[in-house]
Design a protein around this nucleic acid. Structure first.
Length: 818
RNA sequence: GCCGAUGUGGCGGAAUUGGCAGACGCCCACGACUCAAAAUCGUGUGCUAUAAUGGCGUGUGGGUUCGAGUCCCACCAUCGGCACCA
């Protein structure tokens, strides 16, 4: 008897697959299927999250291949980013060398998992062959007005010494290092993602294969709201204050106006007035308050009158202008009309500063209603609103907008919560932004034929910033040829990862970023798999890029990812595995101890893919035992020559086994095809193995060799996407010459899963009292007769009246009795 | 505060259309094998009472139904997202 020597088996098959180039073969006659797992940052070590992510992807890729698809399953590296720079500073090693080492290490580790990648397509975002095209894409955005530079208050991480996108600020802290994020006025590069806000929102409808949860998160993030922009002239000036409101119907209740402290009018209006000093002091004070405190609902509302008045365009009332901390500069127009009676925040502020509260909407059933303690934000009837009195507020909404539009004092409009994507970073290890600043010509894009703008290699480790690199900094103007300076900011790494799934379709192309026809053929990605932490950032940016590239005629589809699977976290002791908590389990160790097949099987078996997975050493042992059990089963069958047994008849046990074979094929196929329930697919295979153990023990001489072999082949094929090494080993052992990966996925025999005899449950008042074994084609009447004839049922019904009998064919009979 | 998800044995989880709750795995107990142990194979394993038939049981309370983990109403708990967005 041989032992399950997983070390030998796994390295043997990994080598053989590579020698035979088993993966990355394409058959254009077959329908395409593109499986993609979110590519990793090359930290140097894979963790259990990776194992889970890539095991899921590999099962799908292998399964689809066996089902006859032309499968694209690539892998690459999201290789730019801060950790490389931190390593450079700490260990005096060049970020590029550090990164390349990590890639090599991680690639080795990934390969020990036996994943079916086409490594010929491997890409790395920090290679100049790749970032050249990231730069080229940036230039296309720039030329089409979708990349621009502006000065504004931005999120600044003092620890990373760089700006951050809104999406990268989590609870007021830097997503990367958890440092409190501050504010800074800076001139920065943006992508105009807001131009696509509406389409990004609308097309969420198209994403049928995405989890509802992710779609809702994106919807909320884009945050569309309907309202109006209304113009309030400022008294004694030529200025007009433009405000956005979702409640134009409450315009007669506006008792003060609020500007964001950063609003450009503020300094102009107070200049030289008695208010100037205290307004400036207030603005200074706010600069010291972090964004998180500033925008928290619990923060106390603060503000002040700035000495000017607006004129209400409909009522002509004078309305005092305030500035306040609770109005944001970069949403809407940065200014609001405040209606304390019908907005909680305005009411809180008005009470504090003794501003009038004017009720303009009342509930339908209360004619004498006045707002006192609580803002009234519900529907109702208009009051104190001139010609609009008595209307329902929804009607007034429309009529007021019409009037404003007619008189050129405002218009209906929509607003989005989504802001433009701040993409520049003050770091070295990223894609350089291909722009040059010339004293004469201004801002000039680098010529496409001069790309890539290469990262200098001779950097100083103590401060990895391009601005400090004199040779990089100085260049010639692409327009006039005179000396000029380069843009020294690099791009957010999310730019790199917003198009990598396209490059995988045409990775070797050096003439253009990718061939349009090839990309159109492979994309959209049929199944994308990754962590839910990317629900907003990466997935929204990638959708945005796809839409822009479509409009630039570089590709012909609207959405990059047809189906999305967001896998849960890997936990240990109830918490996410992390170095800082010290609750990690290293995949290398597990593979060393049990092998990759066991590791893969465990992460697939222990929980459904979308849920969090609690690590269990004993659970791993259980999976290892299962693989041993299969190995012994096959080995023993070969030693005993069980497959050579011949019988002419099918015994009852043979029929039962045949039923199990086909039922298992059906269950596993449906679990993989319809629901990605890997855990129940594995348990179905376990049940078949258990049935085989029972079957072979009944009577060794009566084993039906053909059927027994068919059952074992079924186990091997069904298990092969999960545990590819041991299954290939056994597949050869039982006499096959090709990898099981090249086998066709089995189909179940409909006849085999129909049983002659079935069990019918007999209930009295919904409680199970007996079970009947009956022929499967029995009629309703016969079931009832059989049930009533059972001794047990007769006994239980002795002193009772039968009121009603319900028969569910092939399932149960329920007798209602009193 | 708003939006969403989840809640089932000692544990991970299953129950696909309203039809046997607890598949499969772990843990545990017992038996076989063994001088012994491990491994392996087998049996049992929701709670509770019992000689046995039973009673209770899917977060809580109500409802619909012959029948509810599954549908409806109210609530509780945990987790996730958003959070002065006018």
């Amino acid at each position: 008897m041989a032992n399950y020597d997983f070390k030998k088996i796994e390295s043997k098959w990994q080598n053989k697959w590579e020698e035979e180039k088993l993966f990355g073969n394409y058959d254009e006659d077959k329908p395409k299927y593109y499986v993609l797992e979110m590519f990793p940052y090359p930290s140097g070590k894979i963790h259990m999250g990776h194992v889970r992510n890539y095991s899921i992807g590999d099962v799908i890729a292998r399964y689809k291949k066996m089902c006859g698809y032309n499968v694209l399953h690539p892998m690459g590296w999201d290789a730019f980013g801060l950790p490389a720079e931190n390593a450079a500073i700490q260990h005096n090693i060049h970020p590029n060398i550090w990164t390349q080492h990590n890639i090599e290490d991680m690639e080795k580790q990934l390969k020990t998992l036996g994943l079916s990648y086409d490594w010929d397509r491997e890409i790395s975002t920090c290679n100049k062959d790749y970032y050249k095209w990231t730069q080229w894409l940036f230039l296309q955005f720039y030329k089409n007005g979708l990349a621009y530079k502006k000065e504004s208050g931005v999120n600044w991480c003092p620890s990373c010494e760089t700006v951050l996108a809104n999406e990268q600020v989590v609870n007021g802290q830097c997503e990367r290092c958890d440092t409190e994020v501050g504010k800074k006025q800076l001139n920065q590069w943006y992508f105009k993602i807001t131009d696509y806000a509406d389409e990004l929102l609308e097309d969420i409808k198209l994403l049928e294969g995405w989890p509802q949860k992710v779609k809702i998160m994106q919807e909320n993030w884009i945050g569309k709201s309907f309202g109006a922009e209304i113009e309030f002239p400022i008294e004694n000036t030529s200025k007009i204050l433009n405000v956005f409101t979702t409640r134009p119907d409450t315009i007669f209740g506006a008792t003060y106006m609020v500007l964001a402290p950063e609003h450009p009018y503020v300094s102009e209006l107070v200049k030289g007035t008695e208010y100037e000093d205290c307004v400036n002091a207030f603005i200074k004070e706010l600069e010291h308050v972090s964004d998180i405190d500033r925008t928290s609902t619990e923060a106390e509302k603060k503000g002040m009158f700035i000495g000017h008045y607006c004129i209400n365009p409909l009522s002509s009332e004078r309305i005092p202008i305030y500035i306040a901390n609770y109005v944001l500069a970069d949403y809407g127009t940065g200014a609001i009309m405040a209606v304390p009676a019908h907005d909680e925040r305005d009411l809180e502020f008005a009470k504090k500063y003794n501003i009038e509260v004017k009720t303009v909407i009342r509930p339908e059933d209360d004619g004498n209603f006045t707002v006192v303690d609580e803002a009234y934000i519900d529907k109702g009837i208009m009051v104190n609103s001139g010609e609009f009195n008595g209307l329902k507020n929804e009607e007034a909404f429309e009529k007021i907008c019409e009037l404003l539009e007619k008189e050129n004092k405002g218009k209906k409009t929509v607003n989005y919560r989504l802001r433009d994507w701040l993409l520049s970073r003050q770091r070295y290890w990223g894609t350089p932004i291909p722009i040059v600043y010339c004293d004469k010509c201004g801002m000039v894009p680098v010529k496409e034929e001069d790309l890539p703008v290469e990262l200098p290699t001779d950097i100083k480790f103590e401060s990895t910033k391009l601005a400090n690199d004199e040779t990089f900094l100085h260049t010639d103007c692409p327009s006039c040829g005179q000396t000029a300076k380069r843009e020294t900011d690099t791009m957010d790494t999310f730019v790199d990862s917003s198009w990598y799934f396209l490059k995988f379709a045409d990775p070797k192309n050096t003439e253009i970023p990718f061939d349009k026809d090839i990309v159109n053929k492979w994309l959209p990605v049929d199944q994308y798999i990754g962590g839910v932490e990317h629900a907003i950032l990466h997935l929204l940016y990638s959708r945005f890029f796809t839409k822009v590239l479509r409009d630039l005629k570089l590709l012909d589809f609207d959405e990059p990812f047809k189906n999305l699977l967001t896998q849960g976290m890997v936990l240990k002791d109830g918490a996410k595995m992390s170095k800082s908590k010290g609750n990690t389990v290293s995949p290398e160790e597990i593979i060393q101890k049990y092998g990759a097949d066991t590791a893969r099987l465990f992460v697939l078996f222990a929980a459904p893919p979308e849920r969090d997975l609690e690590w269990s050493d004993q659970g791993v042992e259980g999976c290892f035992r299962f693989l041993n059990r299969i190995y012994r089963l096959v080995d023993e069958a070969l030693v005993n020559k069980s497959f050579e047994n011949t019988t002419d008849t099918m015994s009852k046990d043979d029929n039962e086994l045949n039923y199990m074979i086909h039922k298992t094929i059906k269950r596993v196929t449906e679990d993989l095809e319809e629901r990605f329930n890997f855990n129940t697919a594995v348990s179905a295979i376990m049940e078949l193995v258990n049935a085989l153990y029972k079957y072979k023990e009944i009577d060794k001489k009566l084993i039906n060799g053909l059927l027994f072999k068919e059952a074992i082949e079924t186990v091997i094929i069904l298990l092969s996407p999960f545990a590819p090494h041991i299954t290939d080993e056994l597949w050869y052992k039982i006499g096959n010459k090709n990898s099981v990966y090249l086998q066709e996925w089995p189909k179940y025999d409909k006849k085999a899963i129909v049983r002659d005899e079935i069990e019918i449950v007999v209930q009295i008042n919904g409680k199970v009292r007996d079970k009947l074994i009956v022929s499967s084609d029995i009629s309703k009447e016969e079931i009832e007769k059989e049930a009533m004839n059972s001794d047990r049922i007769k006994d239980l019904l002795k002193d009772r009246d039968v009121k009603k009998v319900i028969v569910v064919p092939k399932k149960l009979i329920n007798i209602v009795a009193k």
